Structure formats: C-alpha cells, structure tokens
Amino acid sequence: MNSLIRLSKFSLLIIIALAANSAHGQDKESNNPYAGLPFKDRLFFGGDLGLSFGTITYIRIAPIIGFNVSPKFSVGAGPSYQYYKDNRFIGLESSIYGGSVFGRYFVIENIFLQTEFEVLNLDELYYNPTSDYIPDRVTIPVWFVGAGLSQRTPNGSGFFIGVFYDLIGDINSPYPSDIAVRAGGMISF
C-alpha cells in the first residue's frame, strides 16, 4: 500500500510540475487565451469508450471532466466502468470499477504527452482445494505514461488517440498487456 501512495504522490507531483511549467512566464494577454476566463469556460468534458467482442468480451466506459490550465496543458479526472469476460476460462467474468486522474501536455499543436494514474477494483479468482473458484475483490493501481495525437478545434473540442505504457504492470491488471491504445473525444462549451 505504501508503494501505491508513493506512486500516486509522484504522479500528482508530475502533474503539478507540468502545470507550473506551463503557467510559468506566460503573458496573460498574448500567450494564454484562457487567462481571465471564468472557471466554467476552461472546463471540458469527454472520455473514451472501448469495445471488444469474441473470446474475450471487453466493454469500457470512462467519462472525464478536465480543466484547461493553458493552451498546452490540461488536467482532469473521471470514473470508469469495465465489463470483462474471458470465455477461455469458466467463471472469468468481472465488473471493474475505477477512477483516474491525468495530466496532458501538448508538445506541439496536435501531439501530446500524458500521464494517468488509475485505480481499479475487480474480482480476483483464488483457487480452493475443493476445485471451486472463490471470487474476491482486489484494488490495483495502473500508471500509464504515453503519447498521442489529437485533432482539436479552437475552442478545445475534438478527438484523440494515444498509446500508453503501464509502469506498474500489476499481475491482476485487466489489461491484456502493459501497452494500451485508447481513443476518445472531448467537448468544450
């Protein structure tokens, strides 16, 4: 648990450092069109949806709410729900609940770097000597870092696709590998 707390604090420090760097030295009038805007005008909403059907059925719904710190840097958070069923194994089915926080920094116009810390709660199957599986819920951390491509309108709405690597690689992770590809969208009002 201590390593989880250290990792979440480290991820939070990275997000704060990126925010400070993004805000440092910016002229309110010329470099940051968000400066002086009301809080609600800097918010955006979005998320991602994942679907896979076949031997492994996977459905992911992850809405987010974000805040544009500057034109290059945004932060956000949101809940997630995933349904996972693997037909290769009897009884391997789980509803996965979680939440995440992220920081996204645009290196150039449409290319971003992102760190995201996610906590998931899912069933873990333990083997019982009577040959029965006994489900128990476990909470696991996932820490993604990666990059992506985003197509945005001037108001910040748009879509993204990214490739992310899980630095923790917990054995109970529902992700089939340490690499995840995500696509989604965002809307600014």
Score class of each variant (00 low, 15 high):
68 N>D: 12
8 S>Y: 08
82 Q>S: 09
28 K>C: 14
40 K>C: 13
171 I>R: 09
68 N>A: 12
18 L>F: 12
6 R>Y: 14
106 F>Y: 15
46 G>Y: 02
84 Y>E: 04
68 N>E: 14
130 T>F: 14
16 I>H: 00
71 P>M: 10
50 G>H: 02
171 I>G: 10
110 N>T: 10
29 E>R: 06
98 G>Y: 04
126 Y>K: 15
182 R>V: 14
128 N>H: 09
62 A>N: 04
79 P>D: 06
50 G>R: 00
48 D>W: 15
41 D>A: 13
51 L>W: 05
60 R>E: 15
50 G>A: 07
92 L>Y: 12
143 W>M: 02
152 R>W: 02
36 G>L: 07
32 N>T: 03
142 V>F: 03
178 D>R: 13
38 P>K: 06
181 V>R: 01
153 T>V: 07
4 L>M: 10
166 D>A: 01
185 G>V: 12
123 D>W: 07
162 G>W: 00
78 G>W: 02
54 G>Q: 05
56 I>Q: 09
153 T>F: 14
144 F>E: 05
177 S>E: 11
189 F>K: 02
119 V>N: 00
21 N>I: 14
114 Q>G: 02
9 K>D: 08
72 K>I: 06
71 P>T: 10
179 I>T: 09
86 D>F: 11
78 G>P: 04
107 V>T: 11
155 N>M: 10
62 A>Y: 01
120 L>S: 02
38 P>G: 13
135 P>A: 09
49 L>W: 04
22 S>Q: 06
28 K>F: 14
175 Y>A: 08
149 L>H: 08
29 E>F: 10
146 G>Q: 01
31 N>G: 13
182 R>F: 13
144 F>V: 04
122 L>V: 05
136 D>I: 11
68 N>G: 05
150 S>K: 07
138 V>T: 13
27 D>W: 11
99 G>S: 07
